[in-house]
């Protein structure tokens, strides 16, 4: 059970390892708050669709399973869209068309097809939470790098009674940021370097795994 939860965070990280769901990830990662909003939306949709598809896995006919999944996913996306539009208007405005585009986020359909229609509800919930958190964390990482270095700020939500306007300004960076990171090209650069970092980490892990294949002989004694 726990393994289903943790695999999404590093080993099968949807964004950096499997590289799915790129377009919303890169487009909305200009501000930290947008990344949080998008991540929350994806977790909700992933959770909802995984639970429903797992529940309905014996009801849904094999031949039209993809359209059924799409209906379930699109319903949850529409719920997110409507709820955000009603109670979080600013966030909804910032995320724009990228909220409805969660429908075509390959992570969600991918999990439905690869996991939820074969597994019990409990395991599907764990899988959804793990994958969703993995996606959100990587999105946050990209957004943080882009906003901190590209604008010198971290935008969160305003807290009125603390006199906090929701924006943390980083000394030294907010006066001369590297604006290019805030642009579309910056998103691609950041993504490229992170992917390279993860490739390197994976490579290292494989090498050490190859080394440890020799060692267990000694350890077993």
């Amino acid at each position: 059970m726990i393994k289903e939860l943790t695999k999404g965070i590093f080993k099968e990280n949807p964004l950096f390892i499997i590289v799915l769901g790129l377009c919303p990830a890169l487009a909305v990662s200009t501000e930290v708050i947008n990344a949080i909003g998008m991540g929350a939306g994806v977790i909700f949709v992933l959770l909802g669709s995984n639970v429903f598809i797992s529940l309905l896995r014996n009801f849904i006919p094999e031949k039209v399973r993809i359209p059924c999944y799409v209906i379930v996913i699109a319903s949850f996306v529409t719920i997110v869209d409507m709820v955000m539009g009603a109670w979080l208007p600013v966030l909804s405005r910032n995320l724009g068309i990228y909220i409805p585009l969660i429908v075509v986020n390959c992570i969600i359909l991918g999990r439905a097809e690869a996991f939820a229609n074969k597994n019990t509800v409990g395991r599907s919930v764990m899988d959804a939470i793990g994958m969703g958190i993995g996606f959100t964390l990587s999105l946050l990482l990209i957004a943080a790098v882009r906003e901190i270095f590209g604008n010198g700020t971290i935008t969160l939500f305003p807290i009125p009674f603390l006199q906090f306007d929701g924006i943390i300004r980083i000394p030294g960076l907010s006066s001369m940021p590297a604006r290019v990171l805030g642009l579309s090209s910056g998103a691609l650069f950041v993504m490229g370097y992170f992917k390279a970092l993860f490739n390197w980490l994976e490579q290292k892990q494989k090498e050490s795994a190859a080394n440890s294949l020799v060692e267990p002989v000694i350890q077993e004694q």
Binding site: L188, F189, G192, K195, A196, L197
Partner: peptide, 22 residues
């Protein structure tokens, strides 16, 4: 460089293209 092969270099190239398209 090995870690950059495949996708990472593609992303960075796309980034440079995006810069040009600006």
């Amino acid at each position: 460089p090995k870690p950059f092969r495949g996708m990472p270099i593609a992303f960075i190239t796309a980034g440079l293209m995006a810069l040009a398209f600006m």
